[in-house]
Each structure stands twice: as structure tokens, then as C-alpha cells.
């Protein structure tokens, strides 16, 4: 059977892989992708715990956790839209996607 632990560990590992990816690459688009992975990991945890609540209680108990996951998705969509727009704009103006080159504001 799938244990709660398995699902949680999968979530943590996915988060870690995403985090490592976001840290190691300098490509802004790729960083955005890795952040999406991390958000997915968070959703996985939400759903796992919701499931736990549902198994030990009523089916209704799973709902709040899943609703939270829905909100995370909404924010993720908004974030990607704005993030990509910003990156596109930077690329157009400066011809660079690597964030170590985007440092005009560095004092």
C-alpha cells in the first residue's frame, strides 16, 4: 500500500531537486521552471495530508487541503505569467537570460 510517508518523502525529494536546480542554474527561465517543481512538491504534500485526514475521518475532511492546492496552482499560474513577461522584457532589452548578467542594480 502507499503509505503517507512515501508520499511525503516524494514531496520532500521533489522539492529538494527543484531547489537544487534553482540554485545551480543561472538561466532565468530554468529557475522559473524549478520553482514550479517546488510548488508542485508543496501541492503533493497538501494532497497527501488531506488524504490522511480523509482516511482517518470523513471524505469531506480532504477538501480544505485540496482547496489550498488549488490556490497554490492559481498563484503559480500568475507567477509564471508575470515572471515570463519580465524575463521576455529583459531579453528584449538586454539580450541576456542569465541572471548573473542581470545585475544593473548591484551597488
Amino acid at each position: 500500500m502507499i503509505d503517507l510517508h512515501h508520499a511525503i518523502v516524494l514531496g520532500v525529494l521533489l522539492f529538494a531537486v527543484g531547489l537544487y536546480g534553482a540554485l545551480r542554474t543561472t538561466n532565468a527561465v530554468r529557475i522559473l521552471m524549478c520553482i514550479e517543481l517546488m510548488l508542485n512538491a508543496v501541492n503533493l504534500n497538501f494532497v497527501s495530508f488531506a488524504r490522511l485526514a480523509a482516511v482517518s475521518g470523513t471524505a469531506q475532511a480532504a477538501v480544505p487541503g485540496q482547496v489550498f492546492a488549488i490556490f497554490v496552482m492559481t498563484v503559480a499560474a500568475a507567477e509564471v505569467a508575470v515572471g515570463l513577461a519580465i524575463i521576455l522584457q529583459i531579453v528584449r532589452q538586454r539580450g541576456v537570460v542569465h541572471i548573473d548578467r542581470i545585475n544593473l542594480l548591484k551597488g
Binding site: A22, L23, I31, I99, D100, L105, K106, G107
Partner: peptide, 21 residues
């Protein structure tokens, strides 16, 4: 102070992120 402190601000998002985590 600002001149010295700004070195900690490398301008690299990722170094901030490492610090965060």
C-alpha cells in the same frame, strides 16, 4: 558601511536563495 555591506549583496538571486534556505 554601505560600501562594505553591499558586498554581501552580490546581486545574485541565487546567493540570496542559498542564504534563505
Amino acid at each position: 558601511a554601505g560600501r562594505q555591506l553591499r558586498r554581501a549583496h552580490t546581486g545574485q538571486v541565487q546567493s540570496y536563495m542559498v542564504a534563505l534556505y
